[in-house]
Each structure stands twice: as C-alpha cells, then as structure tokens.
C-alpha cells in the first residue's frame, strides 16, 4: 500500500495527463457523423499502434545475449508496426474514396 502511494505521488503529473486525455478523447469523438465512423475506427486503431514505441524501447534495453527477449521484442515490433502502417494506410485508402468525387 505504501508503495502504491509512493508511486502515485512520484507520478502525479502522469495521472493528471491521464485524466485530461480521457476527456479530450471523449470531446474529440462526440459529434462525428456516422459516415465517418468506419474510417475513424480504423484511424484510431492505427493510433493504438503507438505501443510500437514501447516495443522498440524494450529491444534497445535488452541484453544482446538475451535471445528470448530479443525474439519476443522482434515479434512485438512487427505486430506494432503492422498495426501502425496498415491502420494509417487503410484509413487513407478509405478516405481517398470519399474525396475523389464531389
């Protein structure tokens, strides 16, 4: 319990940001027309690929002889980047279709 309180007080800004980000997320999406729900979902999905940053950090910090961690990290990076590149690319492809005629 003491450790938890220590963790909270050491990282208080983190929790401020956490709470504010929740509200921003809600406000940003609240009034999006149905037309855009599919691209929005896939665009947001691409953003969740930000976990790739963590995957890269984990690999950079890994001991070069720790092959298990490196192998798992390798898969984590591949998974993360598929999520990022695939997500942004497919969202762009969809939005391209909306754009071409008007």
């Amino acid at each position: 319990m003491n450790e938890l309180i220590a963790f909270l007080s050491d990282n208080l800004e983190l929790f401020y940001i956490l709470i504010l980000a929740i509200f921003i997320g809600v406000e940003l999406i609240k009034n999006v027309p149905t037309v855009l729900h599919t691209p929005l979902m896939s665009g947001a999905n691409a953003l969740s690929g930000v976990v790739i940053v963590g995957a890269i950090i984990v690999m950079l910090q890994a001991d070069p002889t720790d092959y298990l961690s490196l192998a798992l990290g390798f898969i984590a990076v591949v998974f993360g980047i598929i999520n990022v590149i695939g997500g942004f690319a497919v969202t762009d492809r969809m939005l391209q279709m909306f754009k071409k005629k008007k």
Binding site: L14, I17, L18, A21, I22, F23, I24, G25, V26, L28, I29, K30, H37, L40, M41, A44, N45, L47, S48, V50, V51, V53, G54
Partner: peptide
Amino acid sequence: MVMLVGGILVGSAGLIL
C-alpha cells in the same frame, strides 16, 4: 507521454464509438 496520451485517446474515443 506519447504512448500514454495516444493510448488513452484511442481508449476513450473507442468507448464513445
């Protein structure tokens, strides 16, 4: 922070959707 904010944005936006 970029992971925290990026992740939470998706989290709350996904919930609204």
